[in-house]
Simulated assay, not measured.
Amino acid sequence: MDIRVNGSGPTAPFLSARDLFETEYDLSLPVDVEIRDDPDVRTWAGHYDDRHVLNIPRQAASSAMARELALHEFAHMARYEQEHPSHTQSTEEALFLALAGKSVERRKLSHCYQIANHMKDIYADDITLSVGPGEKLLAFLESSLAAAVADRPESAPRADRTRLSANADPEITAVNAAFALALAERHDLVDADHRLYDLAHVATVDAPNVPFETFKRRFRELASDPDSSSYRQVLVDATRTYVGEDASSTEA
């Protein structure tokens, strides 16, 4: 596996991730790691005819999670090379099928894309967690969910509870909680008394209209090797479940 690190930043986390990844998997195409100066750039993988590109901000590349972030992105690259349906299915096509004839607010539509990304992440982390330990990933999931629910006013009556964080929408936070628990349960990372369950409960209280258990089950029980048709249907069904009655018909 050929890896080239470009930009000012550490190389050790990426080489360590490569060594771990290569215990079970390999990539046909080389990987260019682009360490970005912009701290607002998210970590993501791009796929091209002649290479993969791992884009990562310098802050993340220098963090304690750098190796795990790189390993996760290598797993996405592997799924892409495998032509796994989760990484070849057009999200736009699935959403069109799910929402044809419906009017959906922009906020909800962006959440549907995030649900699709969660499914991709499940399949990538099936690889990630087959070659590396899950402790840091579990801690990351816990801290991310805790941050999303941290600002809720505990003393307010349930009917009056509002989320104070401008960045955390309560409905997608509940879906994110379902994803976090589903991934943890899928790989036996948590005991029944883990704090992640308490955080998920808080998230579900804030979003009573989101079918949390349904999403957790969907994420946790994703088939390991679906065909294209069945995966498309799972994505369509998840989209329709999330939008639910909030989608109004545009037909006359």
Rank of each mutant, 00 (worst) to 15 (best):
D2N: 14
N6A: 11
G7P: 10
G7H: 06
P10E: 02
T11C: 08
R18H: 04
T23C: 02
S28R: 14
P30T: 06
V31T: 13
D32A: 10
V33G: 04
R36C: 12
D37H: 12
D38W: 06
R42T: 13
W44R: 09
A45P: 03
H47D: 12
Y48K: 06
D49M: 08
D50G: 06
L54Y: 13
I56Q: 06
Q59G: 07
Q59P: 00
R67Q: 15
A70K: 06
H76W: 02
A78C: 10
A78D: 06
R79A: 10
Q82W: 14
E83K: 13
S86W: 00
T91S: 00
L95D: 00
K102T: 10
K102G: 04
K102E: 11
R107C: 04
L109Q: 00
S110M: 13
N117M: 11
H118N: 04
D121M: 05
A124R: 05
D125T: 06
T128C: 08
V131G: 04
V131F: 15
G134K: 03
L137T: 12
L137Y: 10
S143H: 09
R152S: 09
S155H: 12
S155I: 07
P157V: 12
L164N: 12
D169N: 15
A174M: 08
A174W: 03
A177L: 03
A182W: 05
A184S: 15
D191S: 15
D193L: 07
H194M: 01
H194T: 01
V202G: 04
A203Q: 01
P208F: 00
N209M: 09
P211C: 02
F212R: 01
F219Y: 15
E221Y: 11
L222T: 08
S229I: 11
V236C: 05
A252L: 11
